[in-house]
C-alpha cells in the first residue's frame, strides 16, 4: 500500500510540474497542460469518428501483429528443422531488420496504398523479432530431453507441447513484449505519413495541420493507453498458452 501511495505521489508531482510549465509558457500551441489535454480528450471521446479511428487503427495494427506472430512462428519453426529454409529466408529477414521503417512506409504506400498501410508496417516490424526468437528458443531446447524423447519414442505432439514449448516460451514472451510496443509506434507513425481514413494517425496529422496541440496530446494519451491495454491483453493470452503448468 505504501508503494502504491508513493507511486501516486510521484505521478502527481510530474502532472503538477507539467501544469505549472504550461501555465508559465502560456502558449497552448507549444505546450498544453494536463487539464486542457483531459478536456480535449473528453471532447474527442464524445464523437463517433473518434471510436471509428480507434477501432480502425486497433484492427489494422492488431491484424498486422497477429499475422506476423503466426507467420513468424511457423517460418521460425520451419527454419529450425530445415536448414535450407533458414538459408533461404536469411537475406529477407536481414533486409526486414535493417531497412528503415520510413522506406517501408513509402514503398507500402506505392504498392498497397494507404488503406492497409499500418497492417503492412506492423507486420514488417514484428515478423523478424518473432522469427528470430522462435529459432533461438527452439535452439535452446534441452538436447538431453530430446534424446530421452527419441529413445522412449515420445509422440511428436508431446515433444512439441512438453519439450519444445517450455523452451520456446521465455523467448517468445519477451519478443512479443518488445514487438507489441514497436508495432504500435511504427503503425501509428505510418498512419501519420499515409493518413488513411479513420485512423489515429490521420487525426494526429490533422492536429498538426490545425495547430491543435491539445488534440495532439489527447490522441497521444489514447495511443499510450491502447498500447498498454493491447500489450497486457496479448501477453495474458500468450501466457495462458505458453507457460507450462504442472
Amino acid at each position: 500500500m505504501g508503494n502504491w501511495r508513493r507511486k501516486t505521489a510521484i505521478l502527481l508531482f510530474w502532472l503538477m510540474l507539467w501544469q505549472i510549465m504550461s501555465g508559465w509558457i502560456n502558449k497552448p500551441i507549444y505546450l498544453v497542460g494536463p487539464i486542457e489535454t483531459m478536456q480535449a480528450l473528453l471532447r474527442l471521446v464524445d464523437s463517433s469518428s473518434f471510436w471509428r479511428a480507434v477501432g480502425g487503427s486497433l484492427a489494422r495494427i492488431g491484424a498486422g501483429f497477429g499475422l506476423a506472430a503466426v507467420v513468424g512462428l511457423l517460418c521460425g519453426s520451419l527454419s529450425h528443422f530445415v536448414p535450407f529454409v533458414r538459408e533461404l529466408l536469411s537475406p529477407l529477414v536481414s533486409l526486414m531488420k535493417t531497412v528503415p521503417v520510413a522506406s517501408f512506409v513509402i514503398l507500402a504506400l506505392i504498392w498497397a496504398g494507404a488503406e492497409q498501410l499500418a497492417l503492412v508496417i506492423s507486420f514488417v516490424v514484428v515478423f523478424p523479432m518473432i522469427y528470430l526468437n522462435t529459432m533461438a528458443g527452439l535452439e535452446a531446447t534441452d538436447p538431453q530431453l530430446l534424446e530421452m524423447a527419441q529413445v522412449f519414442h515420445v509422440s511428436g505432439w508431446n515433444r512439441l507441447w512438453q519439450i519444445y514449448r517450455p523452451a520456446l516460451a521465455p523467448y517468445l514472451l519477451s519478443a512479443c513484449q518488445v514487438a507489441l510496443g514497436m508495432s504500435w509506434k511504427s503503425g501509428i507513425a505510418a498512419e501519420v505519413i499515409g493518413t488513411p481514413e479513420f485512423s489515429i494517425g490521420e487525426n494526429l496529422y490533422m492536429a498538426k495541420v490545425f495547430f491543435s496541440t491539445d488534440e495532439l496530446f489527447a490522441w497521444t494519451a489514447v495511443v499510450i493507453l491502447l498500447s498498454v491495454l493491447f500489450e497486457k491483453g496479448i501477453l495474458w493470452i500468450l501466457r495462458k498458452f505458453l507457460v507450462v503448468k504442472a
Binding site: Q144, L145, E147, M148, Q162, I163, P166, V244, K245, A246
Partner: peptide
Amino acid sequence: EDRLCPALT
C-alpha cells in the same frame, strides 16, 4: 542424468 521435464509432475 534424470532427464525429466522440470515443470511437469
